[in-house]
Simulated scan of single mutants.
Amino acid sequence: MPRRVLQRYLPHPETLRRQRSLRFLRHLIGNPSLWMLSRRSVANAFFVGLFSALLPIPFQMAVAALGAWGLRCNLPLSVGLVWITNPLTMPLIFYGNYRLGAWVLDLPVREAPDRLSTHWIAEQMLDILPALALGSLMAAVLAGLAGSLVIRLIWRWQVARSWKRRALRRRRCQADERA
């Protein structure tokens, strides 16, 4: 079952509660509904995490934690999924979001110069921002919905497979008892 696989990799709430740096979040971390591993809580955590990851904003992990708290979904999964956009992947993802927004708004795509500088980025930001914001929002919603749907389908498939295995085992045991 997916629950067992996820439990192997997720931290235990008590371990996090004992950390000094997270002491101010004790009430949030102590809420048991944020640590449940059910189909709904995991699927919603994927939505929140992927949605937060694809937004070009600072403090994405805080946004994911607040989203997990608001939707009562799995906190560590939603916060951990934010790391899809790490310093290595962020430029590619946000450039793709910009291209998506420019395509939707029917704007010409600005090409980066040979030598990328903060000065160039600051000059171009007002022109880039509408396309980046729209593309990021669209990609965030689509990725969140797709992630949530995929998790729900995988979870359902695993449960159905488990039921079939149990039914087969029961039939074999009954056949052995009769023989």
Score class of each variant (00 low, 15 high):
Arg72Tyr: 02
Leu54Pro: 08
Cys73Trp: 02
Ala68Tyr: 06
Gln60Arg: 06
Ala62Asp: 07
Pro76Ser: 07
Gln19Asp: 14
Cys73Met: 03
Val42Ala: 12
Ser41Ala: 13
Cys73Leu: 00
Gly30Ile: 08
Val79Trp: 01
Ser41Val: 00
Met36Asp: 12
Gln60His: 06
Arg40Ile: 09
Arg26Asp: 15
Phe46Glu: 02
Trp69Ile: 07
Ala68Glu: 07
Gly70Phe: 07
Ala68Lys: 00
Arg26Phe: 09
Ser38Gly: 15
Gly30Gln: 12
Phe59Arg: 09
Gly70Ser: 15
Val63Phe: 06
Leu37Pro: 02
Phe24Tyr: 12
Met36Ile: 01
Leu34Cys: 12
Arg26Glu: 15
Phe47Val: 04
Arg72Trp: 03
Gly80Asp: 01
Ser33Phe: 04
Ser78Thr: 08
Ser52Gly: 14
Ala43Gln: 03
Gly30Glu: 12
Ser52Asp: 04
Leu71His: 08
Leu34Ile: 10
Val79Pro: 06
Ser38Gln: 11
Gly70Arg: 14
Val63Ala: 13
Arg72Glu: 12
Gln19Arg: 15
Pro32Leu: 08
Ala45Met: 05
Val79Ile: 14
Arg72Gln: 15
Pro58Gln: 08
Gln60Cys: 02
Asn31Val: 03
Leu25Asp: 12
Leu75Glu: 04
Leu54Ala: 06
Gly30Val: 09
Phe51Gln: 04
Phe24Trp: 14
Ser78Cys: 11
Arg18Asp: 15
Ala45Ile: 04
Gln60Ile: 04
Leu37Thr: 08
Leu71Arg: 07
Gln60Asp: 07
Met61Trp: 03
Pro32Arg: 10
Phe47His: 05
Asn44Val: 04
Phe59Cys: 12
